[in-house]
């Protein structure tokens, strides 16, 4: 491989964490394959972000065009196809996100590249890149090869690649004229829509803070709402919370409630009855806090804390805010 490209993802003028995931993976791949590493930053008014990236990447290719302000897949695919036209022997690494799902598959076709989505790791075998993915309801790992393709696009599951600052000298920023022509877009961004508080769709949330009977007689859920906000997630619950009228029915996870497919599931005071666990799909990271060490939730969880919620939750929120900086 000659080049490892990393596509930077941003929203509302901020780089998203997925970018750093991708940079971490890209850096690792570049090292293993001896390829060059370059970041692709497409956006509108992106100088600050370019500087931020240049600190961690030897080369940052920037396209500045107002039509790239939002992650509209149509201009993005066109721009990237223009940028990479005629190139061979590269891997384009992109952190997976809901914007990227719109972009990567079409891009791979446009580039005539092989695609592996939602990768959790890479192997380099004799210079050949192979991707590790999860299949069958995310319950089985699969090692995927690209049949000798010289153009590869890979998207990454967040949480599997950890980024650390390199400490190397800042890279170069190369500004490229936008290859976008004047033809009108067939797909037009209109606006962002914030979910109303009462309109939370837990089914599509990636991060869920779920509360259960173990919250005791607590009727004020602000502690949990505030933790969820800090994590960028939503509050869901088990049946007893709905029964108490603390949360509406559509926030209930379970075979009889809503099925959820998050990436991370933080279970607070949830005992873990099978009716509840049955509603958690897609093999997320489950973390449980419960004061009963024998609660079945600990059998389903990967990490657990045995303690009172009141002792853990505020401390957790504080630490999370600290980590977010």
């Amino acid at each position: 491989m000659k080049t490892i490209y990393v596509l930077a993802e941003h929203r509302q003028q901020h780089l998203r964490d997925t970018t750093w995931d991708a940079l971490a993976a890209g850096r690792d791949l570049a090292q293993k394959t001896g390829a060059e590493l370059a970041c692709l930053l497409l956006g509108s008014g992106v100088d600050a972000m370019a500087d931020q990236l240049a600190k961690e990447c030897p080369k940052v290719v920037v396209v500045d065009d107002p039509r790239l302000a939002n992650f509209n897949s149509e201009p993005f695919v066109k721009t990237l196809t223009g940028l990479l036209a005629g190139q061979d022997s590269y891997v384009l690494v992109i952190g997976n996100s809901n914007s990227i799902i719109d972009l990567a598959p079409g891009l791979s076709v446009a580039l005539d590249a092989a695609l592996a989505t939602d990768c959790i790791g890479f192997e380099v075998d004799g210079g050949k890149v192979k991707a590790l993915r999860q299949i069958y309801s995310y319950k089985v790992n699969a090692l995927v090869s690209f049949k000798g393709a010289s153009r590869i696009v890979a998207t990454l599951r967040s949480g599997f690649f950890s980024f650390a600052p390199s400490g190397a000298a800042p890279g170069a920023i190369e500004k490229v004229a936008s290859p976008l022509g004047d033809e009108p877009l067939r797909k037009r961004f209109l606006s962002y829509v914030e979910a109303e508080k009462g309109d939370v769709d837990i089914a599509s949330a990636d991060i869920i803070v779920a509360i259960g009977r173990g919250i005791g007689d607590e009727e004020d859920l602000s502690m949990f709402e505030s933790l969820a906000d800090a994590m960028g997630g939503v509050v869901a619950c088990s049946r007893p919370i709905v029964d108490k009228g603390l949360l509406p029915k559509y926030r209930q996870v379970g075979t009889s409630g809503v099925e959820v497919k998050p990436k991370v599931y933080l279970a607070l005071g949830i005992s873990g009855a099978f009716q509840h666990l049955g509603g958690i799909k897609g093999n997320p990271l489950i973390v449980a806090v419960n004061k009963d060490p024998r609660a079945p939730i600990f059998r389903a969880a990967q990490y657990g804390i045995v303690a009172n919620l009141a002792d853990v939750v505020p401390a957790l929120e504080e630490k999370i805010k600290e980590l977010k900086g």
Partner: peptide, 28 residues
């Protein structure tokens, strides 16, 4: 084999958990 129980005082455990969450993509 079930959950790895994070030991220590609630505050310490919470701090460790926050790091794990950060690492595993639990902070958006």
């Amino acid at each position: 084999e079930g959950a790895e129980i994070i030991a220590g005082s609630p505050a310490d455990a919470a701090a460790r958990l926050a790091e794990i969450l950060k690492e595993k993509g639990g902070i958006a």
